[in-house]
Amino acid sequence: MSEQTHQFGLMEMSAIREMSNIGLGHATTALANMTGKSFNMEIPNVETVALEQVPLMMGNPEEVAVGICMPIDGDITGHTAFLFPWESAQDLWRMLIGTAPETPGDIDELAASVMLEIGNIVSSSFLNAISDMSNLKLHATPPMVSVDLVYTIAASIVAEAEMDEAIALALETRLYGMDDCATTGYFLCVPTLSGLNQLFRALGIAEAA
């Protein structure tokens, strides 16, 4: 059995769920402002899972997706990432630059920089919201973009996260367009255990034994 699925108390879990809900609300608004479309998101799923399970939690693992990964720096460390299935990524490109690459092989610097920018704005909004609530300093670091299978992208993020420090939990949600917009995406956040404990202290929640 995995030793690394650290168990948190109800208090901790609901604090994480609430904070991520608010943080992702800000992130979703940022994406809506960028694209001029309405987005909604599901209540984030906060789970203490073994990291190697994460790549199977985000839609169809064999689907091609665009992944934007941003390591978090500051008082809390960890990784955040957005994954957009290929057709949703094409929707985003069309909304923002009026045209989209036809195949994953056609991505040029412009198309890549659009995704980097989405990552910047959306992840920064998420981190700013958490920072405002907790008074902790959080920095978004420069994003990186990959176009590959969902499984490949998620597994590579997870491996890097695990390299930093054994992980506590993953929070994951699906966001989707409203009305005429069918764009969907997945958000993933894997904070380090020490980063989470830092957050609990900042919020005045006793650390679970």
Binding site: I107, A112, M144, S156, E160
Partner: peptide, 17 residues
């Protein structure tokens, strides 16, 4: 592999692959 190939930080990251 290093699947994150786009972005200024991509090449300087510690390369797990």
């Amino acid at each position: 592999a290093q699947v994150f190939k786009f972005g200024s930080a991509a090449s300087s990251r510690l390369d797990v692959g």
